[in-house]
């Protein structure tokens, strides 16, 4: 099997491994223990495997591991932790935006990338941003609510708007 030495950063930590060239970034990350990156389809159809690659959300199943060399990968563990939740994580929990949770890591990363670029998106822009991340449980409404709550507008409001559920 053809292999190459691959070196990249995951959530700030340097990773180095000898990997078969045909392995995708998704497969590599999961084998390295980053199982928070979910495998839903391996074709770029569902977004479960979303990671940030140099800050940009991508399907990690559509990137070869060797292509990540020298780059920075962020998984959902890189944006917050149990005792230090990212505001998006907090709002996903509080709004009931998490049911089975399988789409959640990818969904959160797509949302984070949007807010990094545009701190006050509209609901429509949020829906556009997460349109490559499928969710089979929630019907997306509470996910959009949770992201909306995390926008600068939402934070300004300072409290939950339980009925603001237009989608």
């Amino acid at each position: 099997m053809k292999t190459l030495s691959v070196q990249f950063k995951v959530n700030g930590e340097e990773v180095q491994a000898e990997m078969p060239t045909h392995i995708t970034l998704l497969q590599a990350l999961r084998e390295l223990g980053y199982t928070e990156v979910k495998n839903g389809c391996e074709k770029g159809d569902c977004g479960s495997c979303t990671v940030l690659l140099d800050g940009l959300p991508v399907n990690s199943c559509l990137v070869l591991a060797v292509q990540a060399t020298g780059r920075e990968v962020t998984t959902v563990r890189g944006i917050g932790s149990l005792d230090n939740l990212h505001p998006l994580q907090k709002n996903f929990i509080e709004h009931g935006a998490i049911q089975c949770g399988f789409c959640t890591p990818g969904m959160l990363l797509s949302a984070k990338a949007l807010l990094d670029e545009n701190p006050s998106p509209t609901r429509k822009e949020i829906r556009e941003q997460i349109s490559g991340n499928l969710c089979r449980c929630t019907g997306y409404v509470k996910i959009v609510d949770a992201i909306m709550e995390t926008t600068s507008e939402g934070s300004k409001a300072g409290k939950r708007r339980p009925r603001a559920r237009k989608c």
Binding site: G44, G47, T50, L56, P57, V58, N59, L62, V63, S110, E128, Q129, S131, G132, N133
Partner: peptide
Amino acid sequence: FAGPLVRNR
């Protein structure tokens, strides 16, 4: 075109 994740690549 597809979705944002695909458009990014």
